[in-house]
């Protein structure tokens, strides 16, 4: 099993990483080294074990749907690189 440079490009796009060509190539090498080891678990006989996404035995936790105090608007916006009129300024999504 190996990952091609085109697949690296595709995954970088999915992950929203604007990588340059040398970085893509170095990541291809690294990813292939790791993916080579993934075959370790391909051969294991799991005998019908159900996958579980968590080691915890807790089940869903419910909370009352009641409003509670939160950050003041200025505080929540304090770390934003751009804000306007008390709102986060998001890069343009739909062109006009």
């Amino acid at each position: 099993m190996a990952i091609s440079l085109d697949e690296v490009r595709h995954v970088a796009k999915l992950a929203r990483l604007d990588l340059d060509e040398p970085e893509m190539m170095s990541l291809q090498t690294e990813l292939n080294a790791l993916i080579g080891h993934f075959s370790d678990i391909q051969a294991v006989d799991f005998g019908g074990i159900n996958p579980k996404l968590h080691a915890s035995n807790l089940t869903n936790v419910w909370a009352e749907d009641v409003p509670r105090a939160s950050f003041k608007r200025e505080l929540a916006l304090k770390n934003a690189p751009m804000s306007k009129a008390g709102l986060f300024l998001v890069p343009m999504i739909i062109e006009d």
Partner: peptide, 11 residues
């Protein structure tokens, strides 16, 4: 990959 890894985790 992902589901098999989670099976290993349970095992």
């Amino acid at each position: 990959f992902y589901l098999r890894a989670q099976q290993v985790r349970v095992m």
